[in-house]
Simulated scan of single mutants.
Amino acid sequence: MSKYFVTGTDTDAGKTVVSAGLLAAANKAGKRSIGLKPIAAGCQQTDEGLRNDDAQILQAAASVELDYDVVNPIALEPAIAPHIVLMQQNRRVTNSQLAGYIRGAFFTPNDFAIVEGAGGWRVPLNRTETLAGLAKELDVEVILVVGVKLGCINHALLTAEAIASDGIKIAGWVANIIEPSTANIDENLMTLRALIAAPCLGVVPFLEDCSPTAVAEYLTLPPA
């Protein structure tokens, strides 16, 4: 089973778009796929409880059906940093707790699993842990989504260095063009390819149709 933790260079780098695209690519390759969003802020109240748009996108993109509470066990309503919401609610969530939920989901037969983080690599989870520790707890490789805009090279290289310094392997990275007016995009991508010691899994252009199947056309799965 291939398991990956997806992180981004920033909050709006496009983790969900790319994660759903990777799930669609796995489906096309005949793999049983699951997508998980263990903690999510910015959820909406529904008749069925709190629901997060990103988590629902992953749930729909995967080929294996999972209950929403399995996909997103920690759902938070305010659209602010998760650790701040939890502090305000006098709650504490740990990486060990999240890893327990995820390992439970992994018992469902699958060939390809995506665990999407929240924000960037160093987003706090509580007073002592960041979500970076979740990838280490799970012992999975990381897929880095680079939101291509002005300043993305610095953000991408710092994130890649932080992942490596934590002793975690980058399985690959994806360039997601979020600001198509960015100058010298080709040169930026050439620089990233030269300086990130991991394969580029694709360049996703600025799309009107961001459906998982449309995004999957620009992606390759990480090498086995």
Rank of each mutant, 00 (worst) to 15 (best):
M1N: 10
M1S: 10
M1A: 11
M1E: 05
S2Q: 10
Y4T: 02
F5Y: 05
D10L: 08
D12R: 02
A13S: 13
G14K: 02
K15V: 06
K15S: 02
V17Y: 04
V17P: 02
V18A: 01
L22F: 06
L22V: 09
L22P: 03
L22Q: 08
L23R: 12
L23K: 14
A26T: 15
N27A: 14
K28T: 15
A29P: 07
A29W: 08
G30W: 10
K31W: 12
S33T: 13
S33G: 12
G35W: 03
A41M: 03
C43M: 01
C43G: 00
Q45E: 10
L50W: 06
R51A: 04
R51T: 09
R51H: 11
N52I: 11
D53R: 14
D54P: 11
A55E: 10
Q56H: 12
Q56S: 11
Q56G: 11
Q59Y: 01
Q59V: 00
A60I: 15
A60T: 15
A61T: 13
A62S: 14
E65Y: 11
L66H: 01
D69V: 15
D69Q: 14
V71N: 11
N72H: 00
N72T: 00
P73S: 11
I74V: 13
I74S: 00
A75P: 01
A75R: 02
A75G: 02
L76I: 13
E77D: 14
A79Q: 12
A79K: 13
I80E: 04
A81L: 09
A81V: 06
I84K: 12
V85S: 12
L86P: 03
L86E: 05
Q88P: 03
Q89D: 08
R92K: 14
T94C: 06
T94V: 12
N95T: 15
N95M: 11
L98E: 04
A99Y: 06
A99E: 06
A99R: 08
G100Y: 06
I102F: 03
G104Y: 04
G104R: 09
A105L: 01
A105R: 09
F106Y: 10
F106D: 10
F106R: 14
T108V: 09
P109H: 06
D111H: 07
F112T: 12
F112I: 09
I114W: 01
V115R: 05
G117L: 01
A118Q: 09
G119N: 01
W121I: 14
W121Q: 08
R122P: 02
V123K: 00
P124R: 00
L125Q: 07
R127T: 13
R127K: 09
